[in-house]
Each structure stands twice: as structure tokens, then as C-alpha cells.
């Protein structure tokens, strides 16, 4: 039972971290209709920038400076790259971000080399916050939870309670009307892209010490961010939050319990073949849930799309 509670907390950390990435992406996606394949690369940039800054000044300045730098980089990419490609349609936009992801990974390796970076938690948070039945819960993870919560609340406030938020929401659905009302929609796009990438950068700064800062870090995260926002429903902040937490817990619990598929099959009435070593399905019988944990979100996505194409909280289909 204690372990169950620990797993809830661990899943919360994973889920909230995912949310920080997805919140920006879902805004970008619904506003511009583009799957930003380079989103995880901005997360990577955030971690590397913060690492570099931390070697000079320690962790804390990096927490502020690195996301700002990433946001500026993102805004520049939108202004001088995406905006140009936008007129050609969605597929070219997507290829652009695809190429950009490749490019960012190479540029990072060009400057930082190919080794794992020794990017560490700040010393002040390097202690055990509390222990549940022998399981230590590091203070840094508590910090991660609070950071992600803060991001969510701030975003929610801006989007629903401020004038800027209203314009963004309106521009999501009716860009032309908003433009005609005299608002600078391209500027809104640039702003949203900049803020979205800055959030990815912030996620990188915070996750870098825990999940590792290395050339493949964007690839590991890979397409899971798209899966999350598609499950949650495009353009929905609440959907992104729910889907992130769902995936965080799904992965944590899948990894925590060694349920063997063969046992499940037997419990629902299948009988185990006798000479299991020769059968084509021999691997299926010995498979455990923890082995397939990381691919469960993809299965979930295919199911969600087949049943409810607009996602859990989405209002419209794309």
C-alpha cells in the first residue's frame, strides 16, 4: 500500500513534467495546425543552456535565463522560418520542424560534444524530503511538482482571465476575424510559439538533472508529447494536463508491477501451449507489463483515435 502511494507521487512527477512540454505544444498545434516535431529539441536546448550556465553561476540563474534564451530562439524560428513556410501548407511546415529537430541536435553536438553532460541538481535541494516505507523521495522532485503546478496555474490564469488570453483563444479559432478587429495575429503567433518553446526549455532545465542531459535526450522523449496532446484533445489545456497525468501514472504503474501476460491469458481461459519454446507466440507468454510500459501510450492513442477522434477533451476534430 505504501508502495502504491509512492508510485502515485512518482507518476505525478513524470506526468507534470510531460505537461510542461505539452502545454506549449498544444497551444502551438491548435493555433498553427502544425505538429512541432522540434518541440523536444527545444527541451534539449533548455537543458544544455542551463547546464552551461550552471557551470558558471550555479543552478538558479539558469532556471530563469535558459528558458528565456530558448523562448527567444523559438520566436526567431517562428519569425524567420515557420512564418515563411506557413504559406505553403501544413506538410511543408511539418517537414520544416522535422529538419529543424535534426539540425538542433547536430548544432548542440557541434558545440557541446557527444558525451553525457554532468548537469546536477542544485546542492540546496540535494536531500531527502521524506521517506515512505524506506523509499526516499528527493526534495528536488517536490520542487518539480511545485514548479509544474505553478506553470499550469499561471497559464490557466493568462488564458482565461486576461485580455491577452482572450485574444489568443479567439485567434485559435478565428484568426482572420481577430486580424480584422485590428489585432496583430502574426505577433500573437510569434508570442505563443516563443512562450511554448520557453516552456519546453523550462522543462529541460528542470528535467535535465533527473532524466539526463545527453545528445539523445530529445529522441528519448520523442513522439510521446504528440501522443499526449492527441489523447488529451488538441488545444485543450485541461486535456493536456489530464492526458499527461494519465500517461505518467500509466507508465509508472506499468513499470512497477510485474504482471506476466501469460498469466493474464491463462486467467481469462487460455491454456498455455505445451512446447512453448518452439511456438511463434512464445514471446507473448513470457512478456511482462513493465516490458511494454513505454509503448502503452501509443496503444492508448490508437484506441482513443479509433473511438473518439477529437481526443478526450477536444472540442473539434482536425
Amino acid at each position: 500500500m505504501e508502495l502504491f502511494f509512492v508510485n502515485i507521487l512518482d507518476g505525478l512527477v513524470t506526468g507534470l513534467l510531460l505537461f510542461m512540454l505539452c502545454s506549449g505544444l498544444t497551444l502551438i498545434f491548435s493555433m498553427m495546425g502544425v505538429l512541432n516535431f522540434a518541440h523536444a529539441s527545444f527541451y534539449m536546448l533548455g537543458a544544455y543552456f542551463a547546464y552551461k550556465i550552471s557551470t558558471y553561476t550555479g543552478f538558479w540563474p539558469g532556471l530563469v535565463i535558459a528558458p528565456v534564451l530558448v523562448g527567444i530562439a523559438g520566436a526567431l524560428v517562428e519569425r524567420y522560418g515557420l512564418r515563411r513556410v506557413h504559406q505553403y501548407g501544413h506538410v511543408p511546415e511539418l517537414i520544416f520542424t522535422f529538419g529543424l529537430a535534426l539540425l538542433i541536435e547536430e548544432v548542440v553536438q557541434f558545440f557541446f560534444g557527444k558525451n553525457q553532460m554532468a548537469y546536477d541538481e542544485p546542492h540546496i535541494l540535494d536531500f531527502t524530503a521524506f521517506t515512505i516505507a524506506g523509499n526516499a523521495f528527493p526534495a528536488y522532485k517536490v520542487f518539480m511538482i511545485f514548479m509544474a503546478m505553478a506553470v499550469f496555474l499561471v497559464l490557466l490564469y493568462i488564458l482565461t482571465r486576461t485580455r491577452v488570453g482572450m485574444i489568443i483563444q479567439a485567434a485559435l479559432s478565428y484568426p482572420n476575424t481577430v486580424q480584422n478587429l485590428g489585432h496583430n495575429v502574426p505577433l500573437v503567433f510569434m508570442g505563443v510559439f516563443g512562450v511554448g518553446t520557453a516552456l519546453a526549455g523550462l522543462a529541460g532545465v528542470i528535467a535535465g538533472p533527473v532524466l539526463g542531459t545527453f545528445p539523445g535526450m530529445a529522441a528519448v522523449l520523442g513522439s510521446i508529447v504528440f501522443v499526449t496532446i492527441v489523447i488529451g484533445g488538441l488545444g485543450s489545456l485541461w486535456g493536456a494536463l489530464v492526458a499527461s497525468l494519465l500517461i505518467g501514472w500509466l507508465q509508472t504503474f506499468a513499470a512497477s508491477y510485474n504482471i506476466v501476460i501469460g498469466d493474464v491469458l491463462m486467467s481469462i481461459g487460455f491454456s498455455k501451449p505445451v512446447n512453448i519454446d518452439d511456438g511463434a507466440f512464445r514471446d507473448l507468454w513470457t512478456l511482462t507489463v513493465s516490458q511494454i510500459g513505454p509503448i502503452l501510450p501509443f496503444l492508448l492513442m490508437v484506441l482513443v483515435l479509433a473511438i473518439r477522434p477529437q481526443g478526450l477533451f477536444g472540442k473539434r476534430e482536425t
Partner: peptide, 21 residues
């Protein structure tokens, strides 16, 4: 005695919990 997918696990904490347990 367990295997996890190669290069796909983002957070190893759940595995660490099992080892502790």
C-alpha cells in the same frame, strides 16, 4: 529479474522503487 525497453524509459524511478522493495 526484469527487462525494460531499450532507450525508451524516461524515468527509472518506478524500477528503483521495486528494487528497494
Amino acid at each position: 529479474n526484469e527487462l525494460h525497453p531499450i532507450g525508451k524509459v524516461k524515468d527509472f524511478t518506478p524500477y528503483a522503487r521495486k528494487i528497494m522493495a
